[in-house]
Amino acid sequence: LPQTPVRTAMNTIQQLVMILNSASDKPSDNLISYFNNCTVNPTHDIVERVENLGRIFKEKFAEAVGQRCAEIGSQRYRLGVRLYYRVMESILKSEEKRLSIHNFSKLLNNNTFHASLLACALEVVVATYGTSTNASQGDAMNMETNLSFPWIINILDLKAFDLYKVIESFIKAEPSLTREMIKHLECCEHQIMESLAWQSDSPLFELIKQSKERDGQPDEPEPPSY
């Protein structure tokens, strides 16, 4: 059968649902074991964060697409959380192998890491369904146009540069992502690199400053030829 935009979009949804159907809404036993290995157990904060961000997501989703679609927001969030836990486990497995350590207390107690990882998972879910609406009903009928990137970082009050930091690891950790979704995440990366990371409140500027201080360079503007 010829690959049409609608068929591509439906395949992307099918793939996502297939991956997440068997996934859990809660941390797996493997994840719990990673949490238990931490100097400071992050379980309570992780579960509480998922609940709190869920309330915000569902409220903002309903505001963006209409109150009658509030239940859809809950469904999207549930899928996002499943993907978040699944990718977190995969990331920890590969970090454990790479670093030969079992205690990820610092990473697992880092609020920015979790919020960014969850935002990335939600972006994949929202974009997957958004593409299908685009492809099947046309832009004029698209309820979810309002949810397109960078909507997710705005509603969760995240810095674009922090989301950028998880995208590559997310792609590596989830081999079942479709080609379309990888391309979408790459587009988000480009948008961050080209504009969003350069907004005045971006953590990128502090990193540049620290990097210059480490190298012993004065913080002077670069010559115009650069």
């Binding site: 590969s94 790479r98 610092k106 990473l107 998880v166 792609i171 391309k183």
Partner: peptide
């Protein structure tokens, strides 16, 4: 992932990006 440009350097992972040991 064949078309995706990976930016992390060899031996680098997410722990370094979030300032973890």
């Amino acid at each position: 992932t064949q078309d995706y440009h990976f930016g992390l350097e060899e031996g680098e992972g997410i722990s370094e990006l979030f300032d973890c040991d």
